[in-house]
Structures are given as C-alpha cells and as structure tokens.
Write a protein that binds this DNA or RNA. Structure first.
Length: 174
DNA sequence: AATCGTCGTTCTT
DNA sequence: AAGAACGACGATT
C-alpha cells in the first residue's frame, strides 16, 4: 500500500436523472456530498477529480447512491443508502442530520420538533442552520423539515426544489 | 407585520 | 479567547 492515506481525496461522480445530473462526492469512508444539477446560471465549480471507475466498495456505494436517488426522485422509498461520511459536521449538526434520516417519506417535521427530538428544545433556529449545512440533500431528507404551522421554511437548494421534492411525496405545503 | 427570545456556527476583533 | 453577527425558527403582540 502506498503511504498514510490510501484513497486520498474525494472523487465526484455524475448521476444523470430525469431532473438533471446530480453530482455525488465520495471520501474514503463513504458518500460525503450530493449536489443538485447545475443550472445554466450557476457556473461550474469542480473541486474533486471525477472517479474513473466504479470498482471495489466505492463502486457499490455508487450503485446504491444512484438507486436511492432514482427511487427518491420517482417517489419511491429509497432502499439501502451507501455509507455516509458525515465527519465534516459538528456533533450538533450530525445529530440533526441523523434525526432527519428518521423522517419517513411523505411525513414532515418542524424545525422545533427536530430540536426537541435531539434534546435541544429552543434550538429550532440552530436546527435550521444545520439543515442548511446538510451535505447530502434528498437522501438526507432536509426537504421534509418545515417551519411551524406547516409553512414551507427555507431551502438552501432553492425553494423550488423543496416544493418539487415534497410534491414527489404527495405533499403540497404552503 | 414587527419584535423578541433562543442557540449553534461563523466571522471579527 | 471572547464577543458580535447571523440564520432554512417560534412565539407573542
């Protein structure tokens, strides 16, 4: 084996879907990022090299990522997710992200409810921040987190995406 | 609609 | 290291 770090830096992988081409980002321990399709307005910004092959465990991660994404985008419940590398987050953020993973498709929670669920009542606003820092939207379903009273709240990927993702699950808030 | 309380993160001293 | 500023909030007025 080569020195210290084997896999080295993350690799990107494009996942074409009917809604555009998503970009997955992998570290050596799992899926660490997923970005929405680039719109014509938003210019490109590739920081990691594209993966050349889909072999080994990373290959299986890619397969499960694509399957899960395709399921999610067609309104089906995703099956097994690839291992997620959430090491970039703070402990608080990771708790929020894990909590969101427990919201089933078609259901929603409020920012305040998430806050209480993770034992930080009163931290609703901080939860919102953490949602905005979610590195793996869609698969970590931050779109299922709404403001109180069923209001839509915000979405870092653009509210149009939030509405679209909710619509795929039969929901139409706000 | 405007305001205030709250809390984790990030940006400034 | 400490403080101010800043949100994908929530509750009150």
């Amino acid at each position: 084996m080569n020195s210290a770090r084997t896999t080295a830096r993350p690799a990107t992988w494009e996942i074409p879907t009917p809604l555009g081409s998503f970009t997955a980002l992998y570290s050596d321990t799992g899926l660490c990022g997923l970005s929405f399709p680039r719109t014509s307005s938003r210019a490109s910004q590739e920081t990691a090299p594209p993966a050349r092959r889909c072999e080994g465990e990373v290959g299986t991660w890619m397969a499960s990522t694509r399957a899960a994404l395709e399921d999610a985008l067609s309104g089906r419940k995703p099956g097994r997710l690839p291992p997620l590398d959430l090491s970039a987050g703070t402990p608080f953020q990771r708790e929020v992200w894990r909590a969101m993973l427990s919201i089933p498709p078609g259901k929603t929670m409020s920012y305040g409810e998430i806050a209480r669920k993770i034992g930080c009542p009163g931290a609703a606003r901080a939860v919102g921040q953490a949602c905005g820092a979610n590195p793996i939207p869609v698969l970590i379903p931050c779109h299922r987190v709404l403001a109180s009273g069923g209001r839509l709240g915000g979405f870092s990927g653009g509210l149009d995406w939030k509405r679209r993702l909710l619509g795929l699950e039969g929901l139409s808030p706000g």
